[in-house]
Every structure is written in C-alpha cells, then in structure tokens.
C-alpha cells in the first residue's frame, strides 16, 4: 500500500502552506481562465501575461486541496519567465509523468489506472526538477485530477491566448 509520505512530500506541503504567486492579475491585460474539478469542488483561477514570447507573469487563485494547490504553485514558479513553447513542453512532460502506470514507479505495489495510450510516452522526469515531487500522486489515481487541474487550466489559457493572438 502506498504510504502518505509518497503523496505528501515535504516540498508539496511547503507549497500548500506557502503558495507561490498567489492572487490574480488584472484582466485584461492578463489572460484569465478558470478550472474546476467536479469531483471535489476544487476551483483554480489562473491569470497570466504574455510579453513577446514569454509568460512574463502568472498568478494562481481559487481554492482546493493540498495537491491541486501545491501543484499549481509549483507550476507557477516553474513556468514564469519561460517562453510559451517551453511552457507547453513542460505541461506535456508533467502530464506525461501523471499518466505513467504506477507499476513502473519505484516501490509500486497496488494496481493503478492504466496509462492513457493517447498520452505522451515516458517523460524525462529529471527535467521537471522540483515538480518531480508530485510523481507519487500517480500511486493515488483519484488524486491525479487534483495534480493536473492547474496545468490543464493553464493549457486552456494558452490555447485561448493563441486564438486571441492570431485574431486581428
């Protein structure tokens, strides 16, 4: 049985207790997008600004469990200052980590959700740095949606920004 320490790593609890980039940017000019987890009622509001190629600023609002909030906090710290293509790569890699079958993780025991064949192949977890602390979430399949909530919300925001940017 997966232990709580697999889920609640110290860095996760730290980001939960002291979330980074907390708040909301004025929108407009910032892009603003809301994400919901209908399972548990978690809500996340991601506001971000794009200057040139880069995500120049990002803030996280809303409320939810330690996993959704810390994951969004870690995400905000990781993407700030990166170019949009880099952020998209990171989202891709992070979601890849969340879709690994748990039996491939060290110390895995019980059955988990099968990896979605539509999801990307094994990601390079090394490049995720601090975000790798969230890989234990995969052992708790119900919580994967918590961990990916902020990321899916940001991805949706980038799509909207793209659509808005390509408009006249």
């Amino acid at each position: 049985m997966a232990g709580l320490e697999d889920l609640y790593r110290e860095i996760i609890l730290d980001h939960y207790r002291s979330p980074r980039n907390r708040g909301e940017l004025a929108s407009p000019p910032a892009y603003r997008v809301e994400g919901f987890n209908p399972l548990c009622g978690d809500e996340i509001v991601v506001t971000f600004e794009i200057e040139g190629e880069a995500v120049s600023d990002i803030k996280i609002g809303g409320s939810g469990c330690s996993i959704s909030q810390s994951s969004a906090s870690l995400m905000s710290a990781a993407v700030k200052g990166k170019t949009v293509p880099e952020v998209r790569d990171l989202i891709h890699t992070f979601k890849g980590m969340m879709s690994i079958h748990e039996s491939t993780l060290p110390g895995a025991g019980e059955d988990g959700e099968a990896a979605d064949p539509a999801e990307p192949g094994p990601p390079d977890i090394e490049e995720l740095g601090e975000l790798a602390a969230l890989q234990g979430v995969v052992k708790f399949p119900v919580r994967i949606k918590c961990a990916t909530l902020g990321w899916n919300t940001l991805a949706q925001g980038l799509d909207e920004a793209d659509a808005a940017g390509s408009a006249p």
């Binding site: 709580l4 889920l7 548990c40 939810g64 469990c65 996993i67 708790f140 919580r143």
Partner: peptide, 12 residues
C-alpha cells in the same frame, strides 16, 4: 485541512 486531504489521511 481540505476535506479531500482529510479523507485521504483517514483512508490510511
């Protein structure tokens, strides 16, 4: 403590 976290710990 968020209810989701609480439920997770109680499950242990």
């Amino acid at each position: 403590v968020h209810p989701h976290d609480l439920s997770q710990i109680l499950d242990q």
